[in-house]
Design a protein around this nucleic acid. Sequence first.
DNA 1: TCAAGGAATTGATTTGAATCACTTCAAGGA
DNA 2: TCCTTGAAGTGATTCAAATCAATTCCTTGA
Lengths: 232, 232
Amino acid sequence: MCCELCSHESSCLMTVPVFKGMKDQDIQALRKVTKSRKFKKGEYIFREGDRSETLFVVKEGLIKLTKTSLEGKEQIVRLLFPGDFFGLYSLLRDEKHYMNAEPVQETVICLIEKRDFLNTMEKNSDLSFRFLLAMNDRLYEADESVGNMSLLEVEQRLARALVLFHDKMKTKTGAFTLPITKKDLASLIGTTPESVSRKLLAFMSQKLIHMEGQRQIQILELDQLKEISELH
Amino acid sequence: MCCELCSHESSCLMTVPVFKGMKDQDIQALRKVTKSRKFKKGEYIFREGDRSETLFVVKEGLIKLTKTSLEGKEQIVRLLFPGDFFGLYSLLRDEKHYMNAEPVQETVICLIEKRDFLNTMEKNSDLSFRFLLAMNDRLYEADESVGNMSLLEVEQRLARALVLFHDKMKTKTGAFTLPITKKDLASLIGTTPESVSRKLLAFMSQKLIHMEGQRQIQILELDQLKEISELH
DNA sequence: TCAAGGAATTGATTTGAATCACTTCAAGGA
DNA sequence: TCCTTGAAGTGATTCAAATCAATTCCTTGA
């Protein structure tokens, strides 16, 4: 059943691109079996090696998917924003999760059980196609990461991350608030907090960006940052 | 129409996991519109920035998908073996390809045009689900790469690559032939040919592997290699 | 309000791997 | 068959970035 967090107007299913276009009655049916749950920052949703038979959807907040090395180093593989789904690998393959899912702030998740999800897929012939489109996009991003990680230097990867956050989160003034700590930013681009600190300082002294506090960033020279990051 | 390379017994569609389970009549219909073409080593199938509205399937041979930096460095993002499909991104999104597709040996490709592919999808409700499963696996591999690339050292990534090739291509003797040059192996794991050369030499002098010629590799201590690579 | 613990910064140092330079080897084309 | 060209191997050197070491700065929770 649907908990109080999942009122009609704000159901996950209404806001998630991949469910758009479903028949009304099927949306209603799916809503009935959709649960939701709040997770605090740092409270793992699942870990590498866990199993689950659930599709998760981010309703509010922000989640990091991470891998951890034996020495305890953490790599953020992807950030999940409201509207993004996850958990599909374990659900479809009946395999263990290969990443950790951890909120970086208080986050609300919707949960759909495997049988309900598959039932809905059978009734909605185009739903698996829309998931296919979504996975297509996601694979694109993962492939980009693979390339970037070994073809670009830290400075370029950082510039790229700033441009991407800028595009995704900028306010009317053009400034944006980093949604994650600089430590996490470092992990996302595959470097250390120290290196991020130094490179951001360099960008500031080159007047490419301006920083206010530790999360507010204003990009002053977008074109130059794109130049550095080899984004065209 | 189907060319001479695509005889009944050896049609791509027969051997490709993702098309398995289709209705016979639909397979036949799709075969009629499937073309095939031979590519020589080094002859690009498509390049970053090209467009195409074609699904490609590897029938014989081996293809590398690569990204190139402005300075001309090449990163192999994925290898495609017989039975693997590619070109889906551009087809589904009407966008440019974001990678180069280049055979590393003489290769036979089957080609299915977008309209034929989408028609078949409409007639076979579970086909998009099977593509979804395939993309799910592929995303897993890409995510693994992202993690490996920044969490593991060159030695570990090389050990991992050797174990994977071993699992995929080993003969009854346990030896296998590297399907790619060491230069490409270097690109695949995100390092330089010099580093690969040195690390392989180190593995040899540790008696973890034995090499015959330049492509024949015999793994002597699989467990130790897995240990090094942090594969469990 | 204060204390505690993580985040961030900054400087000094180390290091893994890239780069450079050259030689040798091998495969494919004329 | 030879010859060209790229692949591969090896040593010397450089360099980007990680690591190590201290502070300082914030948050957050008691």
